[in-house]
Design a binder for these strands. Structure first.
Length: 1169
RNA sequence: GCCCAGGUGGUGGAAUAGGUAUACACGCAGCACUUAAAAUGCUGUGGCCACAAGCCAUGCGGGUUCGAUUCCCGCCCUGGGCACCA
């Protein structure tokens, strides 16, 4: 039988069935072997079927998985379906078929196609995100986020696709268009569920550092998160009179003092360049800024401003962010702001080039050092102040600063002297100094820079009559060694253009150091060689731009910052702002919260119920005081009052044994309150009250919504500390206190389960409570260390109040976990409504429901989750796909996690991979998964392009169908060709002709194995090559360099003329991961009863991969002149001796002196003559 | 504009702790087998020169080095991502 017959007889299908039957690819839970979790990004089963891009990654992981099984690993290699999402739904609407039916069909097609390629998936673990048994847990995870306060409802302007009629996440918008359908998105105010991914921004960023991902994917995520450091600065707002002279810098008076015209409010800006504060000459606020509303009465041109705001609102995002567009804006007349650093009054503008959603929605404009402000200031004729000068430090040998010489600082001018008639400029050639410059010189004490420019011009050129003089550009600094003076020079220089009137010239010309001549303007650029003069010439030719380079500057016009480098000035200014209480260090991110709801049908229902009644119900707060305290002391009465004003019901009981605390007594007195508390309610414990709160929850076993432990007395103190307690309060009952505090251990596990949100707040200067008593907290406790709060014994505690107010219920009640999954109802019509609600809103008997808490009338949330929800945790479910108690058993997770290798397309770099990491981190914080980061190693396969090098697309008709390829060449050849095309990560064009090379190779192997004679022995050379190949193929697979592994096997087969059985068997095993069907067949033909995949990967013999003879290269002056076949490990002396005897080498060495000989063992000899 | 990746024969690509550039494969040419073609096998295949020797070639221009595809500096081009993010 030929290889072609094998393919024709469906030999591949035969083995696929056999593998499925024997369950050879099954991964064992808790196997004794080392584990490997090899994961593909599970596909979205589209109607178009499998694309050639899919099998690329799948083949890579398949080879990898099969290799590690042969190496004795328990490999988890699963596959599933990411099946919710818009395409199926849109297709359903078009064809009138249920999305569920379409999805089932698509999955069937995908599965058939994937199976036809012989991948070694453990199909027992197949999952489907649209299966209620799966999305039950997607919903459950959402509820955990909700309970943690990481999911919230907000009506915000979001990206909306008018065609898909749904809101989109930032990540789903590409070039202002919907990622799915290409329609231009608009901004629309919509009620949304948002996920607080920004709370994890820092961890999502820092977590990247330790991951084995390509730097480019990490860079994409870092860019997307977009962290920047800077400062927030407050500018006081004052009423301004147009007639009044602008305020200068009120020397001697406090810069922060503002007069009677102060309007009692400030504009806060965010800047990454606090160093440039002295250059801030105006402010800009975004059209959405809330200040407009507050200042309405003060703004004199409010009509004009409101008109501008309306216009900005009507623009699409694409229009607003179009870079080509002219900047627009309106000044807020009647108000001004005060630059806090120098007291200068500056105008406030409104413009849509400032985004409401970033930073504070307002900026200080520093036009000289920001391109956008530069453009705006020039357009509206606003003042521009330079505060950073470019600094040129000489680097050439001659000009380099000499540390042993004195540095003379002075003001200088650079003069562009323009010819009276020609377009040429007078330039100087400094001969032995290697300088070629314009006219230049120092400014004397008694003259202005302009006067100096004219004087220098006259001295150095002799010309006398000036037609005009004009400054070019700003101030620049220059630091170099002046050889002709023997000193270092630091120059602050300005540049002037001096146009001559006529040729009148004196003959008293200074030519001591230089010769002058006219250079035509087209040649000036190449003539001049001083970088600072080149800089000015560039400005003269091309106009001035904003100077934004932070690294090559030095501060000027900035009082206490002068002469600092900007990087130093940023720190100094930030400290100044903090000291003067008008600003502070701040960090900002480009990352926005995740718009999580979709107004569509085909997604997981969000398992929340809205209950008006519960919203009206007062939330209860129980405040438990500490040792020797009372409900009427400390900040408790204040807190009670504040909370009651905000609609809470507050209990502040006083314990009868406050001073000699007894646990039993406290529990007895607190339990009645506890009975009133529920999953929405809040307990605050202070000091020993925290300890009591924990014991109360433990004793009653009741679930509680939020627990706040403030200055909490928990953990064990040392005997010395207790002694101090006794000495400090001799009359008090410290013994009882100690018995209460640490007499009996707290059941932390139980309390952690019962309290949904757990917060501990300590102060770093608390005299009683030391943070080390809190260091063994279990997972899931939110620990905050505040500064300067002592033991929290004050009459008002606004910071704590703020935290409690944030727990206020919204009326949204989670569907009880035992009622999950909340299944997606079957509907006849699933067209999007476009009203901001999903089609589910029309299923009245589904929407109307009973409140799980009060049993009253309530309605369900009708928005559904985005497609990304199901894929944000699926790798966890593969580990325990049938579990109906938890999404996955923690012990199993501990065994299989993390994913060792994750392979998929780079298009998911910021969507799936960011969301997935976020969910995994949240689950980690809640103690449900063992690692913070799910994917240790990430590999992005490159795109497979069409034969013409363009992207494959249906419209171009250049799509390669995997089915056709398998039919024509077999699965083995198709898989191997995809791997042979080039490095996995690279984009590479498909070449249908190329696959024949693989077919020829497989056929060669087939014939070799079928025809070898049993008594054959192989040559020593072939033996060496076999062992080398085993080594290389193994290493290449581990590094996912499949193309070179295949090439190595080809080399081996090309050299194999006579082979032995042992040779054939070893070779088949190393080929098996690549071509599983054919090798299994041949293995069987060789008489083996068991599968080849039950074998072990052959060991290579280190002693057998050493060649006996090597080729030594002889170079002369780096050029190859001879190659000698020599025994391996030949000594340096012998090799050199033999090299010198070579005819060609002799020819070159004849009569020459060998200055140096370089010997690299087993590689080369290099003679230098 | 900013960030990332890359640029090697006719084509896909090998080779970088600096050490024989072009492995392997496609394609092409020639030969063998055949009445012929296909298939298969063998041989050749960067350019100049064409026997050898030599010279020139890894986007372009410089630099470091005995020696650079590999390291450094400056450009050009292609692909991907971000983009009025202060």
């Amino acid at each position: 039988m030929t290889y072609k017959d094998f393919l024709k007889d469906n030999g591949e299908g035969k083995w696929q069935d056999q593998w499925e039957k024997s369950q050879i690819n099954r991964a064992e839970d808790f196997g004794s072997k080392p584990k490997k979790y090899v994961l593909d990004m599970f596909p979205y089963p589209s109607a178009a079927g499998l694309h050639v891009g899919h099998p690329e990654g799948y083949t890579a992981t398949d080879i990898y998985s099969r290799y590690f099984r042969l190496k004795g690993f328990n490999v988890l290699h699963p596959m599933g379906w990411d099946a919710f999402g818009l395409p199926a739904e849109n297709y359903a609407i078009k064809t009138g078929t249920q999305p569920k039916v379409i999805t089932e069909q698509n999955i069937k097609t995908f599965k058939r196609q994937i199976m036809s390629l012989g991948f070694s998936y453990d199909w027992n673990r197949e999952i489907n995100t649209t299966d209620p048994n799966y999305y039950k847990w997607t919903q459950w995870i959402f509820l955990q986020l909700f309970k943690k306060g990481l999911a919230y409802e907000a009506t915000v302007p979001i990206n909306f696709c008018p065609s898909c009629k749904t809101g989109l996440a930032n990540e789903e918008v590409k070039d202002g268009k919907c990622d799915r359908c290409g329609t231009e998105v608009i901004k629309k105010d919509m009620r949304q569920w948002m996920l607080r991914i920004t709370a994890y921004a820092d961890r999502l960023l820092s977590g990247l550092d330790n991951l084995d991902w390509t730097e480019s994917i990490k860079a994409l995520q870092r860019n997307w998160i977009g962290r920047s450091e800077g400062a927030e600065v407050d500018f006081a707002v004052i009423a301004s009179e147009p007639s009044r002279a602008k305020r200068g810098n009120p020397a001697g008076s406090s810069r922060l003092s503002v007069g009677s015209d102060f309007l009692g409010m400030t504009i806060r800006v965010y800047t990454t360049r606090p160093d440039t504060l002295f250059g801030a000459t105006y402010m800009v606020i975004s059209p959405e800024h809330k200040l407009i509303e507050e200042l309405k009465g003060k703004i004199k041109n409010i009509k004009e401003v409101e008109k501008y705001i309306a216009q900005a609102k009507n623009k699409t995002d694409l229009e607003r962010t179009d870079l080509a567009k002219d900047k627009t804006g309106v000044e807020l007349k009647g108000i001004s702001a005060i630059n806090p650093v120098n007291g200068t009054e500056i105008p406030v503008w409104i413009s849509d080039y400032v985004l409401a959603s970033y930073g504070t929605g307002a900026i200080m404009a520093v036009p000289y050092h920001d391109e956008r402000d530069w453009e705006f200031a020039n357009k509206f004729d606003l003042p521009i102040i330079q505060v950073v000068a470019p600094l040129f430090t000489a680097v050439t040998e001659k000009d380099k600063i000499k540390l042993d010489k004195e540095t003379i600082r002075r003001k200088m001018v650079c003069v562009l002297v323009k010819h009276w008639a020609d377009d040429s400029y007078y330039c100087l050639d400094w001969g032995k100094h290697d300088w070629k410059s314009f006219v230049m010189g120092g400014v004397e004490a008694n003259e202005t820079p302009e006067q100096a420019a004219v004087r220098e011009m006259t001295e150095e050129t002799g010309y006398q009559n000036v037609k005009s003089i004009k400054q070019i550009g700003g101030e620049i600094h220059n630091n170099h060694y002046a050889e002709h003076k023997g000193v270092n020079r630091y120059a602050d220089s300005l540049c002037f253009l001096v146009e001559l009137k006529n040729e009148k010239r004196s003959d008293k010309i200074d030519t001591e150091h230089h010769q002058g001549d006219w250079i035509s303007s087209s040649e000036v650029k190449s003539f001049i060689n001083l970088p600072n003069h080149k800089w000015y010439w560039d400005i003269f030719q091309n106009g001035e731009k904003a100077f934004v380079d932070i690294d090559s500057g030095v501060m000027i016009n900035s009082e206490f910052l002068n002469d600092l480098r900007p990087s130093e000035a940023i720190g100094k200014m930030t400290s100044w702002l903090e000291e003067n209480k008008c600003g502070h260090k701040a960090v900002n991110y480009k990352l926005r919260d995740w718009v999580f709801s979709r107004q569509r049908y085909w997604g997981e229902p969000i398992p929340l119920v809205y209950c008006e009644n519960c919203k009206k119900q007062k939330q209860k707060v129980l405040i438990i005081h500490g040792w020797e305290g009372s409900g009427d002391g400390n900040w408790f009465p204040w807190m009670k009052r504040e909370l009651e004003q905000n609609g809470f019901e507050v209990f502040t009981p006083t314990m009868t044994t406050s001073a000699s605390p007894k646990i039993e007594k406290w529990m007895e007195e607190l339990t009645p309150y506890m009975e009133k508390m529920g999953e929405n309610d809040i307990i605050i414990g202070h000091s020993l009250g925290s300890n009591a709160a924990l014991r109360l929850i433990e004793k009653t076993g009741k679930k509680i919504g939020h627990l706040f432990l403030v200055g909490s007395a928990i953990g064990k103190l040392s005997d010395e500390l207790w002694k101090l307690f006794e000495q400090g309060a001799p009359s008090s009952d410290v013994k009882s206190l100690r018995e209460f505090w640490e007499g009996r251990p707290i059941d932390w596990e139980k309390v952690t389960q019962l309290a949904i949100n757990k917060n501990i707040i300590l102060s770093d200067d608390d005299p009683y409570i030391h943070t080390d008593t809190h260091k063994d907290l279990p997972e899931g406790w939110n620990f905050e260390l505040w500064h300067g709060h002592k033991h929290f014994t004050v009459f008002e505690a606004p910071e704590i109040l703020k935290k409690v107010l944030a727990c206020k219920t919204t009326g949204w009640i989670p569907v009880p976990e035992n009622e999950l999954p909340l299944t997606l109802p079957e509907v006849d019509k699933y067209e999007p409504t476009g009203t901001g609600e999903s089609p589910l809103v029309n299923i009245t008997d589904w929407v109307k429901t009973k409140c799980p808490i009060c049993g009253g009338e309530a309605h369900r949330e009708t928005n559904t989750m985005p497609q990304w929800a199901g894929s944000s945790w699926y790798w966890l479910r593969f580990i325990d796909p049938q579990n109906d108690k938890v999404f996955a058993d923690l012990e199993k997770l501990k065994y299989f996690m993390p994913v060792d290798v994750y392979v998929g397309g780079a298009e998911h770099a910021v969507l799936h991979l960011l969301y997935g990491r976020f969910w995994n981190m949240v689950l980690y914080d809640l103690g449900y998964v063992p690692q913070e980061e799910p994917f240790t190693k990430l590999v992005n396969q490159g795109m497979i392009l069409a034969e013409n090098g363009e992207k494959m697309s249906k419209s171009q008709g250049n799509v390669i169908n995997p089915d056709d390829q398998v039919k024509e060449n077999g699965a083995d050849a198709f898989r191997m060709y995809e791997m042979f095309m080039g490095p996995l990560e690279d984009a590479k064009p498909w070449n249908t002709k190329g696959i024949i090379g693989i077919s020829r190779f497989l056929e060669k192997v087939w014939n070799l194995v079928n025809n070898f004679s049993n008594d054959g022995t192989i040559t020593p050379e072939l033996e060496i090559l076999l062992h080398k190949t085993i080594k290389k193929v193994g290493e290449d697979i581990e590094n996912m360099r499949f193309n070179t592994a295949i090439s190595a096997m080809m080399v081996l087969i090309n050299e194999s003329k006579v082979v032995s059985k042992e040779f054939v068997e070893k070779f088949l095993i190393i080929l098996a991961p690549f071509a599983p069907h054919m090798t299994e067949e041949l293995w069987n033909k060789l008489g083996h009863k068991e599968s080849i995949f039950k074998e072990a990967w052959p060991k290579y013999d280190e002693s057998k991969i050493k060649d006996e003879e090597i080729e030594l290269v002889i170079q002369i002056n780096g050029k190859v002149r001879a190659k000698l076949k020599l025994p391996v490990d030949i000594s340096e002396a012998d090799a050199i001796k033999l090299a010198k005897e070579d005819d060609n080498v002799k020819k070159y060495l004849e009569g020459a002196e060998i200055k140096k000989t370089i010997f690299v063992a087993n590689k080369l000899i290099s003679f230098v003559i």
